[in-house]
Design a protein around this nucleic acid. Structure first.
Lengths: 331, 331
DNA sequence: TTGTAGGCGTTATCAT
DNA sequence: ATGATAACGCCTACAA
């Protein structure tokens, strides 16, 4: 790879001059600029982003940390962020934090050490305190789908609890009393919030809560299938189910198919969704929608504003929305 | 951020020594090592990967370039690569090439310039020659789902044409003669190959090919819906459809639902798939499977072998496999 | 308008 | 066993 020295030599100037034409800084005679440009072209020169970053403690790169690549949810998230970031001529680097604190920290540090000029974090494992600490550094960041007090201007939040409540109340309004819940891993905040919504709805309508009407699964199809099986075996009286993710909903339907159970005749269903997977099912299922695309776009917007030191970047709060389809029947 | 100098100073040694304990190179008195370790801990020192790369022209990073983040296909691909790469304690950086040559080249160059020690490319836009040229550089890379002659040892290939042929022959064997094709963008190689398979099957069985029985779409759900509509409006005699992607298949089903058409009674369907989206549909649809997970894992394996200069890394060739389900009826 | 030189945080080669 | 010191490729005062 040709370096700035090679270019300087070929053009018969100093590397300072080359650097100047590269960064369009200072005044340069047009004839020299010409010569330098020629040389760069001839040598197929590309400045080393590494050296540049090292020298300037900066880069035109933005980092995105997700918890997993798996699932349609994250594709949408990444795609949207990429597009937003691209518009600003920034380069997006994405990395994964996995399910452990250590990995998440590692990914973030790595990106910071590469002088990413901003970070978008879908962080699930780091504690609030660590995030608060991170906010002391100069690298700006936003938190996607997470609420940390003290960092309100960097949090893109969605009201999971409200969402859960709305979903379950919809079922209740249709006369259901035996409502099961397929929950995500309850040690995760968002899962727990959705579950809280379920509880709130039941309480509000004086329906007793039974712990065995709740089954935890890992947000995936297989888990949804297992959870549904367990639920149904234990509680044949169930008339409705609230699923906390679309994949789990698909899994539940796998069981319905197997047992020849009909939705909504035998059982009603409301599910969370964010990428319309629930509309592939037959019948299409009623959902509370989590607008991941919009949230991703908003996170990019907020980050960019933060980076440009715009004042008052108040992130928008995202509210749940019920999308009524054909999976709920009055009982 | 504390630098190696700070550590050296605090420990009362030279930075050369710090570097040595960092890289476990050379001999160091255990007491000094101790002091250095203490200092590093105390300062919360992290070596700068940038400076390291600049100094060594290397890094423990692997780059992955995909054409888009959108779609379940790519999630699986990325997730799988991440896991394979992680096992080798490498850090994975992923970037996107978009749909233009320029973007793809940009992403690759960027990653190369960051001294990624290896690259996995899902390249669709670069010409063979450019790839051949790229192979001259020292950064090793593999090509995922692409075949370039001269680079056989770096290509993870899938037989798209065979796959298409198998799918369509399955339909033919069930008595179908009026078989439509929902194709991907035909300027893209893999789309074209699948389409070739369709043609081969028809020719082989002496079924005349009608151009208007083929509709192009952009591999997505909306496109599949539109294509199916156009096809059906123009050719009511169609009894079977071959879809070149699962998303498009879902789109076709959207139309079926709208028109109250029943699969497989009114129409039979065979589709490509790679992430089992076709099993969410009712009825579950028969598919030719593209094992993207396995291919991704294989690409990581081959790359790692390449990087370790293992001889004879002959990549495995992936063959299509028909997964019979309930969407095809004898006519 | 252009060149010189020091610095960014490492590694690596010589010395000692 | 450890310390100087010159790279690595670039930027940026400061000089000229």
């Amino acid at each position: 790879m040709a370096s700035i020295n090679d270019v300087a030599e070929l053009a018969g100037v100093s590397k300072a001059t080359v650097s100047r034409v590269l960064n369009k800084t200072g005044q340069i005679r047009s004839t020299t600029r010409e010569r330098v440009d020629q040389a760069m072209k001839k040598l197929n020169y590309r400045p080393s982003p590494l050296a540049q970053s090292l020298a300037t403690s900066s880069s035109n790169t933005i980092g995105l940390v997700v918890t997993t690549y798996r699932g349609h949810f994250f594709s949408e998230l990444m795609a949207e962020v990429q597009e937003s970031v691209e518009e600003q001529d920034k380069f997006l680097l994405v990395s994964r934090g996995k399910r452990s604190q250590a990995c998440e920290r590692h990914a973030i540090n790595r990106l910071k050490d590469m002088f990413c000029s901003g970070l978008i974090l879908h962080s699930r494992n780091l504690y609030d305190e660590e995030l608060l600490e991170l906010a002391q550094d100069k690298t700006p960041f936003v938190l996607l789908d997470r609420e940390v007090k003290g960092l309100e201007d960097r949090c893109i939040v969605y009201e999971h609890t409200t969402a859960g409540r709305i979903a379950v109340e919809h079922l209740i309004e249709h006369g259901h009393r035996h409502i099961a819940c397929i929950a995500g891993p309850l040690h995760r905040t968002t899962s727990r919030l959705r579950y809280e919504g379920y509880l709130q709805a039941l309480h509000k309508h004086n329906i007793p809560v039974q712990e065995s009407m709740v089954a935890e699964a890992d947000y995936d199809r297989a888990g949804g299938y297992q959870a549904m099986k367990q639920l149904l075996d234990q509680h044949p009286e169930i008339t409705a189910v609230f699923s906390c993710s679309e994949e789990m909903c698909v899994g539940a339907f796998d069981l319905f198919r197997e047992r020849n159970l009909s939705v909504p005749n035998d059982i009603s269903m409301v599910s969370f969704d964010s990428v319309s997977m629930c509309t592939i099912l037959t019948p299409q299922v009623t959902t509370v929608h989590l607008p991941i695309k919009d949230m991703a776009a908003e996170s990019a917007r907020v980050l960019l504003d933060l980076m440009n030191h715009k004042a008052n970047v108040q992130p928008k709060r995202f509210l749940p929305e019920l999308r009524t389809r054909s999976s709920v029947q009055r009982v």
